[in-house]
């Protein structure tokens, strides 16, 4: 046993990926990104580093917007949102994301909710973290069936885009010039071969792929204490699950 759960590892990795930002927006149904952001906020506070603002969309408490739903997008276009998370039913090797469905549009066989704000946020938020816990060939496909938002663009104003791809198995970097992912690390319990087998698109990888950096004892303590408390306000079910996993591991 490594002394931490896969979820705790992902949350700590998210905090590292966010390091240096001042304002991050997270979706109302995204407890893991919110947990990572809260971990960063807590440890920056302890280290007396820059203050981190977290906007939880749709939350009445953790949301300082006063101009309605449009304010997130205005705020983003003004360059005031440093990081955001996007997922997708499908993500391909060029970081194109599909939030619409599989098969021929519009009469898609499987229909997901829709693009939401992705066709805007992906272009304008400097540090977009692609996050999808399920790591399988049905998610990570050679080519998405529908491009909700493209990974890269040429010839347009686009200050934002993909910064990293984090899954339940691994962490990838994205090279905008090469339009390719490269495997940075695999999580404890998985091998580089596992990741290759579960990924439907091609990507670069070093000869020896390191293990994803384990959360420090200090980070784990903050996560298990203060962050779990904070999470239970907006994501009570998720906070309970984290507590349950910990008891099981103990």
């Amino acid at each position: 046993m490594p002394g931490y759960s896969n979820r705790e590892l992902i949350i700590a990795t998210i905090a590292d990926l966010l390091d240096g930002i001042r304002h991050v927006a997270v979706g109302a149904s995204s407890p893991m990104p919110a947990a990572g952001a809260m971990l960063l906020r807590a440890r920056n506070e302890i280290a007396k580093r820059e203050r981190v603002r977290i906007s939880i969309l749709g939350s009445e408490e953790h949301n300082f917007f006063t101009n309605g739903g449009v304010e997130l997008f205005d705020c983003t276009a003004q360059g005031r949102v440093d990081a955001f998370f996007l997922g997708g039913g499908q993500i391909d090797g060029e970081a194109n994301i599909n939030l619409v469905g599989t098969g021929d549009y519009p009469q898609t066989e499987v229909r997901w909710p829709g693009c939401f704000g992705s066709a805007f946020m992906y272009y304008l938020v400097p540090r977009v973290i692609l996050f999808r816990e399920e790591h399988s060939p049905r998610v990570f496909v050679p080519k998405v069936d529908y491009i909700s938002a493209p990974g890269v663009s040429d010839g347009i104003v686009r200050p934002g885009g993909p910064h990293a791809l984090l899954t339940g198995m691994a962490l990838f970097d994205f090279d905008k010039q090469k339009k390719r992912f490269s495997l940075r690390s695999v999580h404890h319990g998985y091998t580089a071969a596992d990741v290759r087998a579960a990924t439907g698109f091609d990507y670069d990888a070093p000869e020896n792929v390191p293990e994803t950096k384990a959360p420090s004892a200090e980070n784990l303590a903050i996560l298990r204490g203060r962050v779990t408390e904070e999470l239970s306000e907006s994501y009570p079910a998720f906070a309970e699950m984290l507590r349950g996993e910990r008891k099981e591991a103990a």
């Binding site: 276009a77 619409v100 549009y105 693009c115 066709a119 805007f120 946020m121 992906y122 272009y123 304008l124 529908y146 491009i147 909700s148 938002a149 493209p150 663009s153 347009i156 104003v157």
Partner: peptide, 8 residues
């Protein structure tokens, strides 16, 4: 802004 390059 955005949208260009989306299948939308």
């Amino acid at each position: 802004r955005g949208i260009i390059g989306s299948d939308l």
